[in-house]
Every structure is written in C-alpha cells, then in structure tokens.
C-alpha cells in the first residue's frame, strides 16, 4: 500500500462533517457555523504588539506571528501584501481527493454563500469573491480576526483578503477588498500565479 492510499480519518471526518452540516441545515447556516468556529478560535489567542513594521515582518519571516501559527509561512511581496505558498487545508483536500476522487457534495453552495455580501464577511473584509472552497470560510475570518489582535507600534492593523486560488488553479478575486485596500487587480493576479492565497495588512493611522 502506498502512502497516498492511507486514509487520514481526521481529514475525512472533518470534510464529511461539513457535508453533514450542509445536508442537515443548509449552506447559509453551515457557512455561519464555519465562521463562528474561526472567530471562537481567534478569541482564544492573546493580542500581540510589535514595536515596528520591521519587527512584524521579521516575525512573519520567522513564522512567529499568530497568523503564521495557523497558516504557515507567508511571503511579503511588498507594501503590506502577502502571498501564502500553501493553503493550510491543502493536505486535507489532497487526502480526501486521493481516497474519494472528488470533493463532498454541497461544498460549492457554501463557497457561493461565503462570497455573497454578509454582515460578518464585510466586518472582517473576507469573501466577496475570494472564497474558493468552504475552508476559506474558516481560514479567512480566522486570519482577519487574529489580525485584529495584532498592533504595530500600538496602532491597530486590518487585514483585507484580496484573492485565493483553488487546488485546481481557479483564482477567486475579492474586487471589493482590492478596491478598498488600494491595491491593483494585476498585482493580486500575479501574486496568485505563485501563491495560493493573497491578502494585505494595513496599519491604521
């Protein structure tokens, strides 16, 4: 038996649990549940202040920030824009697909719900086109909520989700957040050529 044939029951259980949620209470409620799980997790993490932006970038490089701890190392492209080389759910997705040759039913509906305008997705500046799977409904709000707990020189930071790329290579762009953050669609598209996720961090004046 090759390593690829080994079933990771935690991965499969997690994906099947999302499928069950969709089947039992519908896509909108499932999306809300996934976001609430993310926000509850972020609530358990302590706030951190970095004396300067350089200190923060060094911590990112060393994978020492609260955000790095949940998603691994990110690459600072410049001007506060980051690219994430690997989706933190990539292993779960790959394992499930290896075993079942596809994703569970209903996942596309949750992704569509996540991309619709909503109170919480607006509050955390996520979704709005940047969702490419239900996992984005956990990952993006979690990162933004953790970002709310990061200050740089005592100033608050805000995170904008700019885009994301599916395992199949389809890019999802959050035009709303691209416009609001002042970055260009061209930049985000280019970042997604080499990364799975693109976001920016701004320090509030």
């Amino acid at each position: 038996m090759s390593k690829e044939d080994v079933l990771d029951i935690a991965h499969v259980g997690f994906l099947e649990m999302i499928k069950a949620l969709i089947g039992q209470s519908g896509a909108p409620s499932t999306k809300g549940t996934l976001i609430r799980i993310a926000l509850a997790a972020a609530d358990k993490v302590d706030n951190v202040d970095y004396p300067s932006i350089e200190d923060f970038l060094t911590a990112v490089e060393n994978v020492e920030t609260n955000i790095s701890r949940i998603e691994g190392p990110a690459v600072h492209i410049g001007d506060g824009v980051f690219g994430l080389p690997k989706c933190p759910f990539a292993d779960s997705i790959a394992n499930y697909k290896d075993v079942f040759k596809g994703m569970p039913e209903g996942f596309a509906e949750v992704t569509n719900e996540f991309n619709r305008e909503g109170i919480v997705t607006d509050k955390f500046r996520v979704g709005s086109g940047a969702g490419v799977s239900p996992f984005c409904a956990i990952h993006q709000p979690l990162r933004s909520a953790l970002g709310n707990g990061i200050t740089i020189g005592g100033k608050k930071t805000v995170i904008y989700q700019l885009g994301c790329k599916s395992a199949g290579g389809a890019k999802g762009l959050a035009q709303k957040w691209i416009n609001e953050s002042g970055h260009s669609e061209e930049l985000v598209t280019k970042v997604l050529d080499d990364h799975m996720c693109c976001y920016c961090i701004k320090v509030e004046e």
């Binding site: 089947g23 039992q24 209470s25 519908g26 909108p28 409620s29 499932t30 809300g32 549940t33 609430r36």
Partner: peptide
C-alpha cells in the same frame, strides 16, 4: 442568532 439559523435551516431541509 446561531441556533435560529441552524434551526430554520434544518426545518427547510
């Protein structure tokens, strides 16, 4: 909010 949304979602299913 959370319980109402899942409750009504289940009722709709």
């Amino acid at each position: 909010g959370a319980v109402v949304a899942s409750g009504i979602g289940a009722a709709e299913v």
